[in-house]
Design a protein around this nucleic acid. Structure first.
Length: 574
RNA sequence: GCCCCCGUAGCUCAGCUGGAUAGAGCAUUCGCCUCCUAAGCGAAGGGUCGCAGGUUCGAAUCCUGCCGGGGGCGCCA
């Protein structure tokens, strides 16, 4: 069952086409004056050089809205206002009562989508920047998977490059057992910094590190073993953080930079054959169309450094070629911070020029802004260091537990701890997902854990409140209904809101603007509470009671599903 | 110098391909618990949509130029 906006668009489209002489978008949207308004007549009038109200009335005469609309009016300069018939609302809702997918069909043409996200660096702490990538990427994975796409999770961890000479030498100095311990308990920054300190202060160590890089790159077995130890211990730690965060990433999703090592030579070969490489200051570069440097000259993407080594650009090119070729993906999502925008666009453009990236395949930079502290600057500890993600999460859960303990003293022990975890983690994720990802946002525990406003706890609570209706009454939600009664204004408003879910999902699947889904869920929850205040459920009788129960259940399921697609759990009680 | 992102109520944010009197939450003020969880609901006040032009029936939204904030601009990733 398509969503209402789509349904109205389909019904109006023939009339628009007839008047326009060609396919024309009716431009249907929700309205404050009526249920929906179609604004297409105005644009059409401009194009035809005619009076918009006349156009609108011709369209209305021709349009066959059948039983869908109870009133169609022309207002203002030429808006077509549509009031949906109560019977239509009732039967549309009834049709999704028994549907697990709430009326949202799977994608018509499923794609293979690679989602590149999280990407922490080996032997480096996970911080809030990794969190945004992880949380947004996880939401993308959940949503697109639910829509039936084939998802390949790509955790492009930083497991290669010059720092590893230094890290391995430090590992040797500290001793494998001790180093493994340090890394697995999550003291990654200390390990990295110690190595860095020695590297900066000790020339002999620096020299050892350089030789070690060469050994690593030439495949020296002992060096590779030590390297793998570093990677594995770090991965074990990352997995612990992912578990805490409750995201879908698994061990199998670690496909680090090192994975592409063997493919780098062939990337250079292919780019050479294509004539895309040029030598510049000793380095081999691609100069993708449309990018210039500060002198206005073509901007290079350095494919091979003047010392013969490869950098991250080459790895990214190998990865995009691999994903489009070997993995046959048609959609590539790079959930990476905004500063990388130009680099990624250059990689995409190069892939186009190389013929790897062709329609209908597409690559998208799912860009995001920074997490700021209360001072409006990048989030830091009092000591000025970047905040460990795991500490951030622990504090959120701790604060959530205090709030839960205060609000609901009857919840104790393991139950309370579990609710605190769900609320705390949910609050952090929701704060991240509920504002436009491109913008920076201020990290504020008090606001994100508030039960008022557009927060996870508010939505989670709205869900539990509905569940408690059924629990207290000792009844099940109706498995099916013939129709849903929408006599009261609050019932109508809720019905319209519920039927908007599919449209939002489609929109977000395309734009990956998860704050729109968040905003929808918040609107739904507030619309529900109004309904709940004005329309007694358990005290109602007959069909009214049944349909109100159905409205409650549909709301709860929509909230649970919607939050679930954002990676947030909606508990039954809290 | 060039490029990208951002600028909306005191604060934190929405505002979907330009559409009707710019919406929430917090904070402030007022009202509502013999009634399905008051962890809630209702109402009020609060806006030169950074500034100035332009496009048009119509601009927070599109274009141009400024102002302010952040980021990027060749061998780190």
């Amino acid at each position: 069952m398509p969503n209402l906006t789509q349904l109205l668009t389909e019904r109006l489209a023939p009339a628009f086409a007839a008047v326009a002489g060609e396919p024309t978008d009716p431009a249907v949207r929700r309205s404050q004056r009526a249920d929906f308004q179609a604004d297409g007549a105005l644009a059409l009038a401009k194009r035809l050089g005619r009076n918009p109200r006349e156009i609108a009335s011709e369209i209305v005469e021709r349009a066959d809205l059948g039983d869908l609309a109870s009133a169609v009016e022309i207002a203002g300069p030429g808006f077509i206002n549509v009031t949906v018939a109560d019977d239509a609302l009732g039967s549309l809702l009834a049709s999704i009562v028994g549907d697990e997918r709430l009326g949202v069909p799977p994608a018509v043409s499923p794609e293979t989508v690679v989602v590149d996200y999280s990407a922490p660096n080996v032997a480096k702490e996970m911080h809030v920047g990794n969190m945004r990538s992880t949380v947004i990427g996880d939401a993308a994975v959940r949503l697109l998977e639910w829509l039936g796409h084939q998802i390949i999770r790509a955790n492009h961890i930083g497991d290669w490059g010059t720092p590893f000479g230094m890290l391995i030498e430090h590992l040797v100095d500290v001793g494998e057992t001790e180093a493994a311990h340090e890394l697995s308990v999550g003291d990654l920054d200390a390990f990295y910094k110690a190595a860095r300190r020695k590297f900066d202060a000790d020339d002999a160590f620096k020299e050892r590190s350089r030789r070690r890089v060469v050994a690593l790159q030439s495949g020296d077995e002992e060096t590779r073993r030590l390297w793998r130890l570093l990677v594995e211990q770090s991965e074990a730690y990352f997995m612990a953080v992912y578990e805490r965060l409750d995201v879908r990433l698994t061990e199998a999703d670690f496909v680090g930079e090192s994975f592409y090592n063997d493919l780098l030579d062939s990337v250079v070969d292919e780019l050479t054959e294509l004539g895309l490489l040029r030598e510049s200051d000793g380095a081999l570069c691609v100069f993708p169309e449309g990018f210039t440097n500060r002198e206005g000259k073509p901007l290079p993407l350095i494919v091979r450094k003047s010392d013969g080594g490869y950098g991250y650009a080459t790895t990214d090119l190998a990865a995009i070629r691999y994903r489009l070729g070997k993995l046959a993906a048609t959609r590539l999502l790079y959930v990476v911070g905004a500063p990388q925008n130009q680099h990624l666009e250059m990689v995409f453009q190069t892939a186009r020029e190389a013929g790897w990236l062709r329609e209908p395949a597409r690559a998208e930079h799912v860009s995001f802004g920074s997490v700021l502290g209360a001072d409006g600057k990048m989030l830091r500890t009092r000591a000025g260091e970047s905040v460990k993600l795991i500490d951030l999460l622990d504090e959120a859960v701790e604060r959530a537990e205090a709030v839960v303990a205060e609000k609901n003293p009857s919840l104790e022990g393991a139950d309370r701890a579990e609710v605190a975890r769900i609320v705390g983690i949910g609050a952090v994720k929701y704060a991240d997902l509920s504002t436009d990802r491109r913008r920076d946002y201020v990290f504020d525990y008090d606001r994100m854990l508030s039960f008022d406003g557009n927060t996870a706890p508010y939505l989670q609570y709205a869900h539990t409140r509905i569940r408690s209706i059924f629990r207290r009454a000792g009844i099940e939600a109706p498995a099916e209904v013939d129709t849903v009664v929408v006599a009261e204004p609050a019932e109508r408003a809720l019905a319209l809101e519920l039927l908007g879910f599919g449209g939002v999902i489609g929109d977000v699947a395309e734009t990956l603007e998860f704050h729109r889904l968040a905003g929808y869920l918040y609107d739904l929850a507030t619309t529900f509470t109004t309904f709940y205040e004005q329309c007694p459920v358990l005290k109602a009788t007959g069909d009214v009671r049944t349909s109100r129960l159905a409205l409650c259940d549909l709301t709860a399921r929509t909230l649970k599903l919607g939050l679930g697609l954002l990676g947030i759990v909606a508990p039954d009680r809290m």
